[in-house]
Design a binder for these strands. Structure first.
Lengths: 171, 171
DNA sequence: TCCCGCATGTAATAAGTTACATGATTCT
DNA sequence: AGAATCATGTAACTTATTACATGCGGGA
């Protein structure tokens, strides 16, 4: 699991739901979590090959209608996936958090509480940082005419952070 | 201005504020709009070279204390920048919109109204799409146990879109 | 028959980060 | 003397998208 780790987990996650072909994985992302994650064939097929080599997935005997190849997750793959899902790391991106939530079995969702809380804290910290920056700006660059635009763009960050914090609280 | 267009504008924008060295451009992004944009030396120096070749920027005679090289924007560069700032294109990313706002001279800010409104419309459309998807989800996958996680991740998109729409309205 | 959707896979390109090599100047 | 900061530049690598090549099977 040297490189391309994120893409590997994204594929592994789909295979954990049910055995799929590369084409189906692509479709699954398009019809499912398209708003925060997508994958192209250029990623999926090489990753499937790697996963097979690393024995985290295997080619099914089943040969579909038109030369399609279906893959399943192995026990070892499932273990690797679980490790990723519940492993703690700081500075987790929204994309990764969402993907974790998406693939976590319902009964194990509570194990992600820590991740969500970490995300929540990060968001709050970021928000505070924006407020501090804004304050500092107003003090130092008081007469600078570009201050207004500066604040405008800063507010975008504030809005986004607020949204994240609110969402995390709701979760 | 063939490729790497975005990075080129990002550098051109900084040069439009005042003549700068590559190092200063990096710092300016770090201390300024770091929350939505950053650039690495690996991007900046090659871009400065290209811009000079295309006569959009020029090396200043001025040679700084330790072999530092300062660049200025040319008239042609300023024109190119303006074209980018106020050119209309749909599906503008938040990053690009913010950068446009950031570099727009105050007196020309109203010219960006259209861009902001486009962004606003995109956000609202996205929000509506999320709502529709959610509705469809609840109808079709009624008994699917993963519905809850699905909705959770969808809500993140909703929150984010809402934040964008609110921000755009405020602007 | 011809087009569309299914299906796999590679190559080229783009955008960006990180690491490295190199060296001057200022501060402690 | 040594560390931090200033300063430029290249090479390697990562991540992801797009385009292309190829071909099967089902429906209008």
């Amino acid at each position: 699991m040297s490189k391309d780790a994120f893409a590997q987990f994204a594929v592994l996650g789909m295979l954990s739901l049910r055995p799929m072909t590369g084409y189906e994985i692509k479709r699954a992302y398009e019809r499912g979590p398209a708003h925060f994650m997508s994958m192209s064939f250029g990623q999926i097929y090489p990753v499937l090959k790697q996963l097979t080599a690393e024995k985290l997935a295997r080619r099914d005997k089943w040969e579909g209608t038109r030369g399609s190849v279906r893959y399943s997750i192995t026990a070892s793959g499932l273990a690797t996936l679980r490790q990723w899902l519940y492993g703690r790391r700081d500075q987790i991106s929204s994309r990764e958090l969402l993907l974790r939530l998406f693939f976590s079995p319902l009964e194990d969702l509570p194990a992600l509480k820590e991740s969500v809380e970490g995300f929540h804290q990060d968001g709050k910290r970021q928000l505070q940082h924006y407020r501090d920056t804004g304050k500092w700006l107003r003090e130092v660059h008081d007469k600078n005419s570009r201050l207004a635009v500066w604040e405008l763009t800063l507010n975008y960050g504030v809005s986004e952070s607020k949204a994240r914090v609110r969402w995390a609280e709701q979760v």
